[in-house]
């Protein structure tokens, strides 16, 4: 029996879909059987980011309404051994499925896999309720902006109401230089306000955009910093303790010496 993890944020555009695609792929790279579920009905993106758009035959709504069997709707990603995706419908809206239906589908998928990664739509309405209904755990994605942190806080409160205890936090799109100059919300500050465990920080990386446009998850490229960050998150999900990556790149010799004397 696998585990269902919902990737959510409240605010749109903080990188839920990118995070879902990359965490899912990273877990698959680590040898797990992963099924990704896109619950953003009407605005599906996960298939585009994964480059699987042209292989969709059936979708989540078809399964819910019994037009096909669940295995028929799963799209296999041929680049990896055991990575599948259940796409959302593009022509319907969030009200075409109910939380109970999604829960039933996710429960079935959990029996077939190690991890079910649920990509949640933005907002706190029906789509959110659908997405969290079947989840065991949650990962909340935010960016170092006040509005995103505020929405993440709201989502954490709602998740607690849905009985998903201790969600984990991913801070996305961190810019090391802005952090250093103090123009960006500090990671510690965000963690203090949200008061949940941090499971990863992802640096802002142009390669992520490039990869998404190519329909290839970022984690496939081992040279990208964001890729390493996503791989680390996947390892932490499996229970490994991996230290947070330094944002500044390689530390200089002087910095190391300073740190040694407690000056850094």
């Amino acid at each position: 029996m696998g585990e269902a993890i919902v990737i959510t944020s409240g605010k749109g555009g903080v990188g839920k879909t990118t995070t879902s695609a990359n965490i899912g792929t990273a877990l698959a790279l680590l040898g797990k059987k992963v099924i990704m579920v896109d619950t953003d009905i009407g605005l599906r993106n996960l298939d585009v980011v994964m480059g699987l758009e042209n292989r969709i035959i059936y979708d989540l709504v078809d399964v819910a309404e019994g037009r096909c069997r669940l295995p028929q709707a799963l799209v296999k990603d041929k680049r990896f051994d055991e990575l599948y995706m259940l796409p959302a419908a593009q022509t319907k809206d969030k009200h075409s499925v109910t939380p109970d239906q999604v829960k039933e589908i996710v429960t079935q998928l959990k029996r077939e896999s190690d991890y079910v990664i649920i990509d949640c739509p933005a907002g706190i309405e029906q789509g959110f309720k659908n997405a969290v209904s079947g989840a065991d755990r949650a990962i909340v994605v935010t960016t170092p902006e006040n509005a995103a942190v505020r929405d993440a806080d709201r989502i954490i409160g709602l998740l607690e109401g849905e009985n998903i205890k201790s969600p984990k936090l991913v801070i996305n799109r961190i810019r090391a230089n802005m952090l250093k100059s103090g123009d960006m919300l500090d990671i510690d500050e965000i963690c203090q306000v949200l008061a949940i465990d941090l499971i990863g920080i992802v640096p802002d990386d142009e390669y992520v955009i490039k990869a998404a446009n190519k329909g290839e998850p970022t984690v496939v490229n081992p040279n990208s910093k964001a890729s390493i960050a996503y791989r680390n998150i996947a390892r932490r999900i499996l229970g490994d303790s991996v230290p947070l990556m330094p944002l500044e790149g390689k530390e200089g010799v002087m910095a190391k010496v300073k740190k040694l004397f407690g000056l850094g």
Binding site: D151, R154, G157, L158
Partner: peptide, 25 residues
């Protein structure tokens, strides 16, 4: 506890609250 964004904690008397009240709460 923690009062998060969108939540309201109401009390009929005086209250000693151990925890944070977040922005929006």
């Amino acid at each position: 506890g923690i009062v998060r964004s969108g939540q309201t904690f109401e009390c009929a008397g005086s209250v000693l609250y151990v925890g944070d009240i977040n922005p929006g709460g």
